[in-house]
Design a binder for these strands. Structure first.
Length: 282
DNA sequence: ATATGGCCCTGGTTGC
DNA sequence: TGCAACCAGGGCCATA
């Protein structure tokens, strides 16, 4: 399940490989209903654009696109005129391949590039979303929540003030923090020594600061290891990440805590499997 | 206003 | 061995 570190890894990989390339044409599968922009409009908007940069915002991959000139060739303007926004949902993958590479089942988009390669969007569970934005008509994409890697102590504490919901549920709320998903919510709460069910607004200032630091450390460590490959996650080159080997609680129900040997417990919170150490987390 | 729970969707795993 | 039930959960939406 791609969360911030996995999305960051994929965005960096795609950036390195397709920056400066040009989208010659775009193909979309018949499946399209939940896409934020109708496939025909995406295909029309993408064709002839140059890829200026690819980066992550929250759990979204944003491709900054330049203009095409009169001959249909790619422009070289530095200022983005459009954006292609990819959300991978649960099972989405964004791959750079050759056109000859076998087309995986559930491939929903294929962008042919001027270099002769293809950028493909594959998503078996169809929780992913694709959107095209014309920046001359609309606003640039922005995540609603704060960046957990950049937020400071004051703003972080303010996010949770007065909130009665469980801290785990609050961490998953993308309008508060953008990019935290189930794995890193559980892992950061473990490292901060906080029980997932604690009411967000009742955490002490010291606990909130431990949580902010833990979150930042867990996320940046995971980025260094290329993310967590817990199901079928692979990066833009088809390479798996290694952070799953570092997990302390996530999907370790019944296994001994790495710190105190107490068996890890699993509860359901906000509809999500939630894992914690009953001894280390208070 | 905040908070909760159901739904979507497929593939892998478990259990009979 | 075969098949069905179950589980995984991000984001959206209806409801309380």
């Amino acid at each position: 399940m791609p969360e911030l570190p996995e999305v960051e890894t994929i965005a960096r990989g795609v950036h390195e490989r397709v920056r400066g390339d040009c989208i010659v044409q775009a193909w979309f599968s018949g499946y399209s209903e939940p896409f934020k922009t109708p496939p025909l409009r995406q295909a029309k908007g993408l064709a002839g654009r140059s890829v200026l940069a690819v980066h992550r915002t929250g759990k979204h991959i944003v491709c900054e696109l330049g203009p095409a000139d009169n001959e249909g060739r790619c422009g070289t303007s530095e200022r983005p005129e459009a954006q292609w926004i990819v959300h991978l949902g649960m099972s989405g993958r964004l791959l750079v391949t050759t056109p000859e590479a076998p087309v995986a089942a559930h491939t929903h988009a294929r962008l042919s590039l001027a270099s002769g390669r293809e950028l493909r969007f594959v998503d078996p569970r169809r929780f992913g979303r694709l959107e095209f934005r014309d920046l001359q008509r609309g606003q640039s994409f922005g995540a609603p929540g704060a960046d957990p890697l950049a937020i400071g102590p004051e703003k972080f504490a303010a996010l949770f003030r007065g909130r009665r919901l469980a801290i785990k549920a609050a961490l998953l709320n993308q309008t508060l923090l953008a990019g935290v998903g189930n794995i890193y919510a559980d892992e950061s709460l473990f490292h901060a020594g906080i029980r997932p069910r604690r009411a967000a607004g009742r955490l002490t200032r010291a606990e909130l600061e431990r949580l902010r630091i833990s979150l930042r450390q867990v996320l940046s460590h995971a980025i260094q290891l290329g993310g967590s490959s817990v199901s079928d996650y692979v990066d833009a080159n088809g390479i798996r990440g290694f952070f799953q080997l570092e997990h302390c609680v996530y999907l370790r129900t019944g296994e001994p805590c790495r710190r105190c040997q107490t068996p890890i417990r699993r509860i359901v919170l906000a509809g999500r499997g939630t894992h914690f150490c009953p001894h280390c987390q208070r």
